[in-house]
Simulated assay, not measured.
Amino acid sequence: MTERQIRLFGDPVLKTVSDPIDAVDDGVRALVDDLIDSVRPPGRAGVAAAQIGVNLRAFSYNVDGEIGYMLNPVIVELSGEPEAMEEGCLSVPGLWFSTMRYPFARATGIDLDGNAIEVSGTGVMAQALQHETDHLNGMLYLDRLDKPTRREAMKQVRESDWF
Rank of each mutant, 00 (worst) to 15 (best):
G121E: 03
G88I: 04
A58W: 04
N115Y: 14
M70N: 09
D113T: 12
I67N: 02
S98H: 09
I75T: 13
I67F: 03
E132F: 02
V74N: 03
F97R: 15
M85T: 11
A58T: 00
F59P: 09
A128Y: 08
G65E: 14
I110Q: 14
G94E: 08
G94T: 08
E132I: 05
V63T: 08
G114P: 04
T99G: 14
G68E: 05
A107Q: 12
S120V: 00
S91L: 02
I117M: 10
G121Y: 05
G53I: 04
E81N: 08
R101L: 06
S60Y: 02
N55R: 13
V124R: 05
V119D: 06
I67A: 00
L90P: 14
V76I: 12
G94H: 11
L78H: 02
T99M: 08
D134N: 15
G65T: 01
R101P: 09
G114L: 08
R57E: 13
D111A: 07
A105L: 08
G94D: 04
G109H: 13
Y102W: 15
D113C: 04
V92M: 10
H131E: 00
A105E: 09
T133K: 07
E86N: 15
I117L: 07
I67M: 01
Y102K: 07
R101Q: 03
G94M: 05
T122N: 08
D113Q: 14
G65N: 11
P93G: 12
E66A: 13
V54W: 09
G109A: 06
G80K: 03
V124C: 10
M70T: 00
A107V: 12
M100H: 12
Y69H: 13
Y69I: 03
R106D: 10
